[in-house]
Amino acid sequence: MNNEDLMGINKKKVEAIIFVANKPVAAGRISKILDIPPDAVAECVLKLNEEYLNSDRSFFIEEVAEGYIFATRPEYDDPIRAFYNIVQKYSLTDLNLEVLAIIAYNQPITKIEVDAIRGNVDSTFQVRTLLEKGFIKITGRKKVPGSPFLYGTTKQFLTYFGLKELNDLPKADEIKKEFKIGGEHEADTLPGFE
């Protein structure tokens, strides 16, 4: 069997696994099952997506935070919404989004620090809403007087915005540079919960 045939077979195996899964499959898992390097999995997915695009299919394989999953193309939003009876289009208000963006780019961050970036505007309400909706979570406590909670984003956050990782955030590098972000926080666990 030559290389191309092998690639073709693996490609179909990868497709089959992602096809039956009802939640994202990590590349590492596929690579273990098929005994091929993770790079080869990524290559298979790339090839498959090319094929879907060329044959004008309504779906493709999307890479989200947890791995690969079949997703329909945005053009077919309406019929699927009708099928599932989804009414809600967009659920975050601009203010919630503003606070979420500040947390996403500066995590881990305390509420007071969020307030400061917003010009000392109180963000208690937005932080609570984002926690409730599962976009952010408490990641630790900052080692300063009062040990305030540190907040960070969740996997659900990445999935909601269709991001693979935090570096995929819009203008991630630019903003990181501006804010000089990197390792200044020391997270700590709650005493007695180690």
């Binding site: 939640k23 193309r73 599932y84 967009y90 975050l92 963006a101 976009f135 269709g162 501006e178």
Partner: peptide, 29 residues
């Protein structure tokens, strides 16, 4: 900058909300 990024994230989210997965995961927040 963050305000602009937030607006861009909004377009990301609205695009993502148009793509559907098998067994629709809960994206309603």
């Amino acid at each position: 900058m963050l305000k602009e990024a937030a607006q861009e994230m909004k377009t990301y989210a609205s695009l993502q909300s148009k793509m559907h997965f098998r067994n629709e995961p809960d994206l309603s927040g």
